[in-house]
């Protein structure tokens, strides 16, 4: 139940970011200066934390999506759905433990 809610919430969040992200990238067609201006805002600390949240949403949605596929197509999927939720949580923690220090170092570290 809650994994289903989280899948929907993260999905909507990612979708709206995607709309914005295509628009900001489209500025490469306007001029190098305008693209660099907008992408510059992605490098400030508040946006850096937002990116960490976005990556967390994507990582959960991706792993839980694989779990949904296994529940649907793997004969033993429904039986192991709860175990697989813990596997999703475990993989999520491991992936974020790899990503977060590196990303925060880029955002908050010196030049």
């Amino acid at each position: 139940m809650w994994s289903w809610v989280a899948h929907r919430v993260t999905g909507v969040l990612i979708f709206f970011f995607l709309l914005v992200h295509v628009l900001d990238t489209a500025l490469v067609r306007v001029s190098p200066e305008s693209y660099n201006d907008v992408i510059g805002t992605y490098k400030n600390p508040i946006m850096g934390l937002g990116e960490a949240g976005l990556v967390a949403a994507i990582v959960f949605h991706a792993f839980n999506g694989v779990r949904i596929i296994l529940v649907d197509f793997w004969a033993k999927g429904p039986k192991y759905q709860k175990v697989m939720l813990w596997v999703v949580v475990g993989l999520f923690v491991v992936t974020m433990a790899g990503f977060l220090p590196r990303h925060l170092m880029h955002v908050f570290g010196g030049e």
């Binding site: 490469v28 190098p32 693209y35 992605y42 850096g48 990556v55 590196r102 990303h103 170092m105 880029h106």
Partner: peptide
């Protein structure tokens, strides 16, 4: 884009 190299700091027009 975010992990390799200098991550988000390295993203620009170039």
């Amino acid at each position: 884009n975010l992990v390799a190299g200098d991550g988000v700091k390295a993203i620009d027009f170039g």
